[in-house]
Design a protein around this nucleic acid. Structure first.
Length: 295
DNA sequence: AAGCTACCGATGCCTTTAAA
DNA sequence: TTTAAAGGCATCGGTAGCTT
């Protein structure tokens, strides 16, 4: 390898593929397209004179050299990032800043455990405040600084907001394990024949209603609650059925998960921020930490 | 077992950008 | 102005998983 010509961005490429074992997802994680990532991997392979990752089914398995390189490369990259964060006036390891994050309870379950793990290593004094409010209030909260970031599949944040993709989730229909609706296929007619419990903490409710409107249909909503998790608990103990992001119910006992009878694109869960925070050092640092989580 | 579909990495070709 | 490199779009081909 000739270090004079080495592109340090290739180290980010290497770390992302090693963590995710997937070129496409690694590309999304660092803001490239899949072909650009594939080309970067090719250049990295040429520089290292080693394939670094070999395809094994749907995973990219690291070679012996990749395993040996990962720890020192990750540490070096972390050092560089911390150094630039300090130049910008933010020292993560010494900070006691509070970051206010807008997210649903599913977001909390998926993001917060890993985020806290990362903070324990990098910024033990930094604190998180998870906030909940109606989706319509998100733009104002981010614009005014009441919240730092919003995480979710949020359609209301467009003009004046930046966004970065974090992971995809799918929407599913859930019912208690012995529910009579399971005796038949979950057709649209079957789905509409039952009373529903809906949660208002994310955008699922709005998106399902839009999908049903396209068929000129509507659900009978018997109960509205604020959290997806409560929605799932109620569905597991009643004859109400619900439509939720799959991550909301993973591992929950007493529930059956089914495909929705209407076509729903996957939930593209992203982090959103207002342009007022775009160049602020601590904010940039927190965004990079969240984007680097293996979600 | 065969056929179908979805997923995913690789590649060709083009445009853009920056350096010489 | 030329050239090389990087990134994006479109597409190809291999693999896995599901259905018949």
């Amino acid at each position: 390898m000739n270090i004079k010509n080495f592109d340090l961005n290739l180290l980010r490429v290497f770390v992302a593929i090693y963590r995710l074992r997937n070129v496409s997802r690694a590309a999304l994680a660092i803001g490239l397209t899949q072909p650009a990532m594939s080309n970067a991997l090719k250049r990295l392979r040429e520089q290292c004179a080693d394939p670094l990752f070999t395809r094994a089914g749907r995973a990219m398995e690291p070679t012996m050299l990749a395993h040996r390189l990962f720890e020192p490369v990750e540490a070096a990259l972390g050092g560089i990032e911390a150094c630039f964060a300090r130049v910008g006036g933010f020292e993560p390891e010494a900070s006691d800043r509070v970051f206010k994050l807008l997210m649903s309870d599913v977001g909390e379950m998926v993001v917060l455990p890993k985020l806290l793990g990362a903070l324990a290593r990098m910024a033990p004094g930094v604190r998180i405040e998870s906030m909940r409010m109606p989706l319509a209030d998100y733009p104002h909260a981010l614009r005014s600084g009441e919240a730092d970031l919003a995480i979710g599949n949020i359609g209301v944040l467009r003009t004046g907001f930046y966004q970065q993709h974090l992971f995809d989730d799918r929407y599913v229909c859930i019912a208690r394990a012995e529910h009579p609706c399971l005796e038949k296929r979950m057709t649209l007619a079957n789905y509409l024949a039952w009373d529903h419990v809906v949660a208002t903490s994310g955008s699922t409710d709005v998106l399902i209603e839009e999908a049903l409107s396209a068929h000129r249909k509507h659900r009978r909503v018997k109960l509205t609650v604020t959290h997806y998790h409560r929605c799932a608990v109620i569905a597991s103990q009643s004859d109400l059925i619900a439509s939720v992001p799959a991550n909301a119910v993973l591992g929950m006992p007493g529930l059956t998960m089914m495909e929705l009878p209407v076509r729903m694109p996957a939930a593209r869960v992203r982090q959103f921020w207002h342009r007022r925070s775009h160049t602020e050092a601590s904010h940039k640092w927190m965004r990079s930490v969240i984007a680097g989580l293996d979600l």
